[in-house]
């Protein structure tokens, strides 16, 4: 039986919902994006879907489940729909390593990259110590990824293929690239973090990543938001 389309509550420019779309694309799962504005996410209608009032959330009519938090959604999607391990592993220890890197994305990359863009871009008053704190953290996280790719020695974070763990970082690294360029901090990054740079280049060649990066960039451009 063909799969029914998954409903995804998303947003034209937000990295966390687009992250889930990359995994949906990779697995060939049909989906509909329900676009929500940030002004709506803390209203009762959306709080019924996600008590935390944030994007993304999904409803899967094939199973009837509603889920929120991009990490939990991605784990659900590969669990249900990636039985042939296209972007995941069932073997030990790879299964646990992919989960570990996803947790690092959710806990170590997303929140801090988000704070960096807030203080460097959006907050009206420039607070240098806060900007430095979070921009340094962005670069530190890039360093952790570079080192891990070097250690694993396959070009990927886990095993010898591109998994959801790698893919989960891409929408935020796109935002980071734009931000670091604005702050004149992009120069030299390629030579300092060559494996990170190669890793991103390889991911950006994938159809799923190309397509979603383009849609996110277009959404942001249309709303006057930098990449």
């Amino acid at each position: 039986m063909p799969l029914k389309a998954i409903d995804l509550w998303g947003h034209w420019g937000a990295p966390n919902p687009w992250k889930v779309c990359i995994v949906l694309e990779e697995l060939g799962i049909p989906y509909n994006i329900q676009s929500v504005e940030f002004s709506e996410v803390k209203q009762e209608a959306f709080l019924m879907i996600n008590p935390n009032g944030r994007l993304p959330a999904i409803k899967d009519p094939n199973t009837g489940i509603t889920l929120w938090e991009s990490g939990a959604i991605i784990q659900y999607l590969v669990d249900q729909y990636d039985r042939d391990e296209r972007v995941s592993y069932n073997s030990f220890p790879e299964k646990y390593f992919t989960q570990q890197w996803l947790a690092f994305q959710i806990s170590g990359q997303g929140p801090y990259f988000g704070q960096a863009t807030w203080f460097a871009r959006f907050h009206p008053e420039k607070i240098p110590s806060a900007i430095d704190r979070y921009v340094n953290e962005v670069i530190r996280v890039i360093g952790v990824l570079d080192k891990a790719i070097e250690t694993n020695n396959t070009g990927w974070l886990v095993g010898d293929k591109c998994t959801y763990a790698d893919l989960s970082f891409v929408t935020w690294t796109s935002v980071a690239e734009g931000l670091l360029r604005e702050l004149n901090k992009l120069d030299g990054l390629e030579t300092r973090y060559p494996r990170y740079t190669e890793w991103l280049t390889k991911m950006e060649e994938r159809e799923s990543v190309k397509k979603i990066r383009e849609r996110m960039a277009r959404g942001r451009a249309e709303h006057g938001l930098p990449p």
């Binding site: 935390n52 944030r54 889920l67 929120w68 938090e69 991009s70 990490g71 939990a72 784990q75 659900y76 947790a103 959710i106 806990s107 997303g110 929140p111």
Partner: peptide, 10 residues
């Protein structure tokens, strides 16, 4: 896991 990720990421 929605709640668990909410704790570690939020």
């Amino acid at each position: 896991f929605s709640w668990l990720f909410f704790q570690i990421g939020g």
